[in-house]
Design a protein around this nucleic acid. Sequence first.
DNA 1: GTTATATAGTTTGATATCAAATTGGAGCAA
DNA 2: TTGCTCCAATTTGATATCAAACTATATAAC
Lengths: 150, 150
Amino acid sequence: MNREPLPFQLFTEIAIIDQLAGNAFERALPAGITRAQFTVLHHFIRRGLAEQSPAQLADAIQVTRGTMTSTLARMERSGLISVRPDPADGRAKLVALTEAGRAMRDACVAAIGPLLPLVEQSLDETELQTMLQLLQRLRQKLDNARDTAI
Amino acid sequence: MNREPLPFQLFTEIAIIDQLAGNAFERALPAGITRAQFTVLHHFIRRGLAEQSPAQLADAIQVTRGTMTSTLARMERSGLISVRPDPADGRAKLVALTEAGRAMRDACVAAIGPLLPLVEQSLDETELQTMLQLLQRLRQKLDNARDTAI
DNA sequence: GTTATATAGTTTGATATCAAATTGGAGCAA
DNA sequence: TTGCTCCAATTTGATATCAAACTATATAAC
């Protein structure tokens, strides 16, 4: 039926799913917080980090430093993070979660909980595992490609 | 290791892959055209469409009408599409590809060709097929959910 | 026919994102 | 110390995206 190369179809499906899921996700989040901001909060907690430089966050989350600058500015304004100069490097800053940030992250996790069963309604446990493995492999490949030549 | 619910991990992987692939994709495209604009060009060709209203395009591509308005405005300015009033409905418009639009779509397809082997280097044919099937099921589920209650 | 409701498209304001240019400190070399 | 290069963060300008408000036309209800 479909004459598209399979990899092309794959990226098309992924783009659509990301858009659908991302929208549902963002609509489920508490007012005033976005997916990008949640990603920062979540990163701190998941990795058990205390302080991180904007550059470290940008690299981990795979956005440019300019993007991270503006996201962090908004998060600081709304009190989710604190930012201080790095005493060891005059160019750098150190970002940490505030209590409000921690609480907001918990509220977000609770808010998106109800979305997760949607996945379980379309894929069983084994399928989910399979898909995750394959996606991880693909992601690593893309990640390496980005570092080398692209 | 990872204590995240599997569906959550799944969405995380998909988001990262979409970001990585989308960036590579956009960098590969000819100067002056974007992923969103390519999606419109591609939609016309893939479905063999002559004319479509902005609303039809927005629905098919899953963006809001406001988003489509601004994308189409840019595409018309750069000559990729032509737009005329719908003679049958005073509110509506009819969008069609120009020759330049058709040519640009071909150029885009050629430009992204070299990216596709990246997928084949991480997944064999069977795995790709499996993944596509599962993703399609998930996408359909999310699509239905969006229509009903979310 | 007039009014009410629905639909097509646009506009506005906010956020995210990138690439490229800029600012200013860090570190090394001569 | 002076200069050169590298790196952290920011700024700028463009695009995409959404939700919500708005304009104008169409259609139904009466």
